[in-house]
Design a protein around this nucleic acid. Structure first.
Lengths: 246, 246
DNA sequence: CGCGCTGTTGAAACTTGTCAAAGTTTGTGG
DNA sequence: CCACAAACTTTGACAAGTTTCAACAGCGCG
């Protein structure tokens, strides 16, 4: 877990079992619902499950019937091809949804693996469609969430298609920082839950290149690195590094 | 336009103005709707528009209110960043939808440019949400289309993150071939509507690298290239090239 | 019919990948 | 709780792939 910043909006120590009592509801699917609507969503989200570090939440090729909301923890999604190549397609944290890729073919098209002990809420998709026909806010918000995923993917394409190694890593760190901030954690200090290899796979780089970029950022005074513990010392420096291409 | 293969399922010479009469309905939003449901969709899709080659259908940052179905023609979507870098995020052809990225923020997040004279149908999004609350098939199919876009994006990430230049181009050509086939055109012979630079931007390569890869494919006998006219001579060869990494 | 845009090709430079070795952390079983 | 093995990280030297720069050819639009 990253460092809590005092007074952050989220307290993970209190975990209720319904959306209506969930601290993540403003980040997650229930955004914008009334109290009465929230209760109806509660009925739907009945299955909650722990996923231990290293376990799969789902695997590519298996039948799709639910999407998943992360209540706590940290996941990666990846796609594997025959010859053993892996592409990490994303890292997901509390309040984010997993499994949207499975809707199109009714089978999951990637693997979702917990990078730390996590808890998820399963949302049966057929029932979500029923409910979203009745609750306009839910329908619209769900569409926004799917669209946001598409926009996020375009950002990754930009990163992979046009940036060099250090720019990619800077963008990655700034993105993590921003997402931790949104969850009430420190924007400047966090633990990475993934290995250099997984970061590399996400960024289209080899692990050695990732490691060298970390070292270089440290030399330049942008960050302090101690294995998986990262402290960002110069946000502006990282941003500048991202923007001037050469 | 790519070569028509005789007896293909689509005749572009007959263009009706309603979904119910549109030859693309099996590729496009109306998939799976009954005749009665189709009529209701017709009411919604009232604006049809020509977009000349080089013109923008929409621009990044402008307000979003409709998604667009391509009736005929060819588009690219791209994202620009300040320092002038461009990432082409996709090439779209008849029957495909444009603008899904705009739902999340109610503003378009990329540019859509016609690569040949094209025709589109505008689908007001708010009205689509209303109708999809009433027509379950439409709702579900729309969700599938959005999800398919996410899956497609993951494929592009895989391409950008793990493949080398020639693999990327092979994957690109095979993908185009497959999509032309689905539209009743020859799978082996087509005109590229985009420049080497646009292909390069999509594939995360410089135009010179794309050009060299085309030349090499021609030397190896995989394809015949004459500027924008491509003939695929050895599908299996291209597939093999994609799969063995080194 | 020519000018500009697009595409091709070569050589050199640069970035990233590959291979290898050693150091560090983490997890497990005794 | 310690010890050892496995997994992960760092760093160096070298190789490979891609970009950069440059020159030229070809096509097509006006």
């Amino acid at each position: 877990m990253p460092q809590r910043s005092p007074g952050g909006p989220i307290s993970l120590s209190v975990i209720k079992t319904a959306c209506s009592g969930c601290n993540l509801r403003e980040l997650c699917l229930p955004l914008g619902l009334s109290a009465e609507e929230l209760e109806r969503l509660d009925d739907l989200v009945s299955v909650r499950r722990r996923v231990k570090r290293g376990e799969h939440l789902y695997r590519s090729g298996t039948p799709f019937d639910s999407i998943f909301a992360i209540r706590s923890g940290f996941f990666k999604t990846d796609v594997l091809i025959e010859d053993g190549r892996e592409q990490v397609t994303g890292f997901q944290m509390a309040g984010e949804l997993l499994g949207l890729d499975g809707i199109s073919s009714e089978h999951h098209t990637c693997n979702a693996v917990a990078l730390e002990d996590s808890e998820i809420c399963a949302i049966p998709f057929a029932r979500l469609e029923v409910l979203s026909r009745e609750i306009h806010t839910l329908q619209h918000h769900f569409h926004k969430v799917m669209s946001r995923e598409i926009v996020r993917d375009h950002g990754v394409m930009m990163l992979l298609g046009t940036m060099r190694a250090e720019e990619r890593l800077a963008a990655f760190l700034l993105n993590l920082s921003q997402r931790f901030t949104a969850r009430g954690f420190s924007h400047a200090e966090f633990y990475l839950r993934m290995t250099r290899e997984e970061i590399g796979s996400y960024l289209g780089l080899k692990l050695e290149t990732v490691s060298r970029a970390f070292s270089r950022f440290q030399e330049e005074g942008y960050i302090a690195v101690q294995q998986k513990h990262i402290r960002i010392l110069d946000v502006a420096g990282l941003k500048a590094l991202m923007n001037h291409h050469r």
